[in-house]
């Protein structure tokens, strides 16, 4: 693969090379994650963005070796966390890595928290198991963690059950749990998608502050380009299991190279587009991407995006484009990239 360590970055905490995960369906296997490569340095956030079914969540699960097996199976690639190849670790060692070095935050805090244990018990589990802390020390740490993530009256909330907390508070507890053993990598899969916009703003601010304080590497999975713009340093755009564009966030938004990225950005109704229209309803049409994401079982030959692409050329039907440098630090998998305007 042509993805090198990003020029601006120090040594990566996480390095993923050619990661390939198959889904074994009744009518044969499909590659839901197909040769994905990226790296995340300490103190940096990589956003993985794409629409449903693009493979972004399965990529995160593959990094953690938590893919539901069967039907999913990691069939190729390397996942290095601080140089250690996670894919070759025995499961017992992997469990330790998950507990100590990886923090995970998922979309729905209610289903990720155990309803029959108090917040404090769940927060103490990691440190007791992985750091060998005493019950009392772990409880003190739980209170500290709740305070760190901005939960008011942490000495009382430590004894609350998840259902006694609001959605925003539960997500804060999830983040506290993820941080309990001081991980070097935080993986957050749509951490704010289930939250209201004012609460989302709180959680995003919290994640930023914690990352800066702890100099963590963050892998942020999201469908929201607004969240990407505000949180990420580097972005990987996925389509049909592949990374189609990989670029520093400013470059990506200023001049997307892949027509799919450009199409996604144009699909967002902008304040400007709304103001440009008249009150009578003569708004400028949104420039939607035509068609829909193809089924992984029936991908077109060559580039998976070509049937929806306004820039497709003959070559796109024949050869699948490789992810390669288009300009500066910007990589795209495209035979006919969007020129800078």
């Amino acid at each position: 693969m042509t993805v090198g360590t990003h020029p601006a970055s120090a040594e990566p905490v996480l390095e993923v090379r050619g990661l390939t995960t198959e889904l074994r369906l009744e009518d044969g296997p499909v590659r839901a994650v197909d040769g994905v490569s990226f790296s995340v340095p300490a103190g940096s956030t990589l956003g993985v963005v794409g629409e449903s079914g693009c493979g972004k969540s399965l990529t995160a699960l593959s990094v953690m070796r938590l893919v539901p097996e069967p039907p999913a199976r990691i069939v190729a690639g390397e996942v290095r966390l601080r140089g250690v190849d996670l894919l070759s670790l025995p499961e017992a060692r992997m469990r330790e890595v998950r507990g100590r070095s990886l923090g995970m935050v998922f979309q729905e805090p209610m289903t990720s928290l155990n309803p029959v244990h108090t917040v404090g018990e769940q927060l103490a589990e990691g440190p007791r198991l992985h750091l060998g802390e005493s019950r009392r020390r772990a409880r003190e740490r739980a209170v500290e963690l709740l305070r760190t993530v901005g939960i008011p009256a942490p000495e009382e909330r430590v004894d609350a059950y998840p259902h006694q907390l609001s959605g925003g508070m539960r997500q804060r507890v999830m983040i506290a749990m993820a941080l309990a053993c001081d991980p070097s990598l935080l993986i957050a899969d749509e951490p704010t998608t289930a939250l209201d916009v004012t609460v989302q703003a709180q959680i995003l601010e919290l994640l930023k502050r914690l990352q800066a304080e702890r100099y963590m590497a963050v892998l942020l999975i999201t469908h929201d380009l607004g969240v990407v713009a505000g949180q990420c340093d580097t972005v990987a755009v996925m389509y049909a299991g592949k990374v189609v564009e990989y670029a520093p966030v400013r470059e990506l938004f200023a001049h997307p190279a892949h027509p799919y990225t450009a199409g996604l950005l144009r699909s967002i109704p902008s304040w400007d587009a709304a103001r440009g229209g008249s009150a009578e309803g003569a708004r400028p049409r949104l420039r939607a991407i035509p068609g829909m994401v193809p089924s992984l079982r029936q991908l077109p030959t060559g580039c998976a995006f070509r049937e929806r692409c306004e820039r497709a050329v003959d070559r796109c039907a024949q050869v699948a484009p490789a992810l390669e440098v288009k300009r500066g630090a910007q990589l795209a998998a495209c035979h006919h990239p969007v020129p800078t305007s």
Binding site: E51, S52, H223, L225, G263, L264, R266, S267, I268, P269, R285, L286, R287, A288, I289, P290, M292, V293
Partner: peptide, 11 residues
């Protein structure tokens, strides 16, 4: 709905 599909429905 996904972003690219949302724009189709809005139109």
């Amino acid at each position: 709905l996904d972003v690219s599909i949302q724009a189709q429905i809005v139109n």
